[in-house]
Amino acid sequence: MRIDGTFSFNANPEHVWDVLLDPEALKACIPGCQSMTSTGENTYVITLTVGIAQFKGTYDGNVSIQDAHRPDRYEIHVDGKGRPGWVRGVGKIKLVDAGNGATTVEVEGDATIGGPVFSIGSRFVPPAAKMLMGQFFNAMKKRVEGPAG
């Protein structure tokens, strides 16, 4: 399953980078994040409760940031499982300087899902993933551009 998206920020790439990779910001902006604990440099264990409408599930997983080249690109590796199913994926994230103190963030995600959510819910997963990604970057955008950011 591919999940792609492009998001624009009114801040320079360095600033966007620092917020996107700040554990506190991640915890606040990841939709449904119940807990996130660091287990080493750039690795975390995370618990999420996410879904659509009544179809919610709790997932436990490992997240790691790899191949990080501030402020240009990084990869986020996710490996999670919960009662509704499991997910394994990699997101390649690129920060492009858009000039005038703005940044375009390009996401290329590739994920594999399985379990019950896959057997009847597979057609709901890509739009749900896209929606959650949108929520994440909108929350990040507020943090980057807002008075506190």
Binding site: F55, P84, P116, I120, G121
Partner: peptide, 21 residues
Amino acid sequence: AKILAGGHSLIPALKLRLTQP
């Protein structure tokens, strides 16, 4: 609580435990 009507969308989701009212 959840409303059950014809059950033809709800029951399959219950059986897979995608929802657990």
